[in-house]
Design a protein around this nucleic acid. Structure first.
Lengths: 132, 132
DNA sequence: TTTAAATTATATTGAAATAGTATACTTTCG
DNA sequence: CGAAAGTATACTATTTCAATATAATTTAAA
């Protein structure tokens, strides 16, 4: 159970933009974060669409944060690139189908949802801005 | 970010064994849980190796829990089939490589580890036995 | 003691998700 | 204009996940 590499990359990119306060072009960002140029462009597009990063076209173009780093959380960045955090795909489905017992009302769905909520709260509580 | 289907299946299987207290053969277990026979055998092997389930060979063989259901947790079952819960693959690696800034000591590894620990504690706290 | 019902083990295949690339296009600024 | 940047879509490769196939071994009962 872990986040995708792409989400990791997105975190690196936002972290880099947080620290290097100047506008950066994709090429510099890519080499600074260790992500391939093409792939970082793909990620940057998602971050722009979500309103986390702002882009500038043209010769002096590049990327910078669209809002204060203190308002950007790990959770927001992660969910932007890989979608909502869920623990089990089974959540939302009816139930486990143990036909050998009478009632098989499943309490694990609830547990999974609680875990997902726990993770979400923790990740949304961690902001990029407030680094010591 | 979610557990694998295999882990879901493992939970179903252990849940089924918890509820149907009799010894069950793989075929019945498979059809009761909606997992294919072959795949459930593969999962059962892991559960047996971990000491969660006990197997009996021969004509009257089958599977049953190796210990009280109240001592088996969601976390144990999940980690048995898919390995340790981690949030980022980046954890343990050196750091993000933003070369444009001086020090880039990364606090996200720590955050990831905290989240993983949170999830682990929650999942290990949920036992199969104490279902109402 | 044979035999059928069960588990065990290894290897292989198929499918889906992830990761990364290619190409063509648009915008902006000097 | 024209070069340097971002934008968009589509495609390919790789990895991981899911499932299957085959063959061997063990056990209990007839």
């Amino acid at each position: 159970m872990h986040i995708t590499l792409e989400a990791d990359y997105a975190v690196r990119i936002v972290n880099c933009l947080t620290r290097c306060k100047t506008r950066m072009d994709a090429k510099s960002l890519a080499s600074a974060t260790g992500v391939t140029l093409r792939f970082s462009l793909k990620i940057l597009r998602k971050l722009v669409a979500q309103g986390i990063v702002r882009s500038y076209k043209g010769t002096q173009g590049g990327y910078e944060l669209a809002k204060p780093a203190s308002e950007i959380s790990l959770g927001e960045v992660i969910e932007t690139v890989e979608g909502p955090i869920t623990i089990s795909r089974c959540v939302g489905a009816k139930d486990f189908h143990c036909t050998r017992v009478g009632t098989d009302e499943c309490r694990f769905n609830k547990a999974y949802q609680e875990v997902a909520e726990l993770v979400r709260q923790k990740l949304y509580g961690i902001k990029f801005g407030e680094q010591e």
